[in-house]
Simulated scan of single mutants.
Amino acid sequence: MPSSLFTALILAPLTHIAVSAAILPRGSLTWSPCTDEASAAGSPAVQCSQLDVPLDYTNASAGQLTLELLKYPATASKCKGSILYNPGGPGGSGRDDLTLLGPWLSIRSMLGGEFDILAWDPRGTGNTLTYSCYDSQQERAAALEKTPEASDATNTSLIEVWDASGAVAEACASKAAAFGELVGTAFTARDMMQIVDALNEDGLLRYWGHSYGTVLGMTVAAMFPDRMDRLVLDGVVNPNDYYHD
């Protein structure tokens, strides 16, 4: 796909998000041993930090949002920089996935331990603007029980799945009405670049994304093409389908 067409496909849904550089203050990171049980479970070397970013990139007066970050430091004698990692979803905690499922082990092995590996909890996950589409686990279980399997077993199966998915979407929209516009790929991409700036390295993004994380990677690359170093997109999702279907 020509680069200009790719950029157009990605940026088309994002054109309403106009951001002034004046409302993008640069934060800083101070790393220390993780104290919460989930983050500290993976390795004694794991470190944690927090970063304040704009809550609403279109409204300077909206305040700030605190991102939770986790890092596995490079093991080589010389670190070549940081790699941001996203497990996909959307809806998964990057910190939990990196720690509990151990993808950092394979990434570190493939790269010779020469990079710090970082994960964060994107908006809507972990401790970052989290919400539930249901008032209780019982309500969630009841909704899932009513959701049919996605198959073509009958002439109406796919229609039933479509209707059930619409009901879930309506439930989520009603629960997130107060801040739903603040939870999305475009703002998450801007959060990523805030992290890159706070790292105070070379100002370039190195990124490893799985599944939906590939959409996030393509989006941030389209929004900030001059600030990309290297991206690994693993299990690629079609961005045109994601944004337009």
Rank of each mutant, 00 (worst) to 15 (best):
N238E: 03
G180Y: 05
G94W: 09
S28G: 11
W208H: 02
T156Y: 13
L182S: 05
T58F: 03
L182C: 03
V215H: 00
D135W: 07
D36L: 14
Q47Y: 05
F224D: 10
R26M: 12
S93D: 04
I195V: 10
Y212M: 10
S82F: 01
T147I: 01
A153E: 11
G235Y: 09
V196E: 00
S174N: 14
L11Y: 03
L216D: 01
T30I: 12
W162R: 15
L144A: 02
E170H: 10
L98K: 07
A169T: 12
S77L: 14
S3C: 14
C79N: 15
T15R: 14
N86Y: 09
K78M: 13
L129R: 05
I195R: 08
M218I: 04
F187N: 00
E201M: 08
D97N: 13
G94N: 02
I83C: 05
Y134A: 00
N59C: 07
S28M: 08
P54A: 11
S211C: 04
D245E: 09
F224K: 04
S174M: 12
D56Y: 02
V168Q: 03
G209M: 02
A8Q: 09
G91I: 04
T58K: 04
A38Y: 06
K146I: 10
P44H: 03
F179Y: 14
G91W: 07
S39F: 00
A38W: 01
A60I: 09
A164D: 13
A45Q: 13
G126N: 06
L105E: 04
S32D: 14
A164L: 11
P122I: 08
T188P: 07
K175Y: 06
T219I: 05
L105P: 01
S82L: 08
D197Q: 13
D36S: 12
S32L: 12
L29A: 14
T58V: 02
L100R: 04
A74M: 11
S61V: 06
M193D: 01
G113L: 11
A119G: 10
P44W: 04
S4C: 07
A41L: 05
L14H: 15
K71S: 06
W31V: 03
S3H: 14
I17R: 08
E170W: 07
A22L: 13
V19G: 02
T154A: 09
A150L: 14
A169M: 12
D152N: 14
S211N: 14
I107T: 12
D197E: 12
P44A: 07
W162F: 13
Y212L: 06
Y242I: 03
R123T: 09
T219K: 02
F179K: 09
S82I: 06
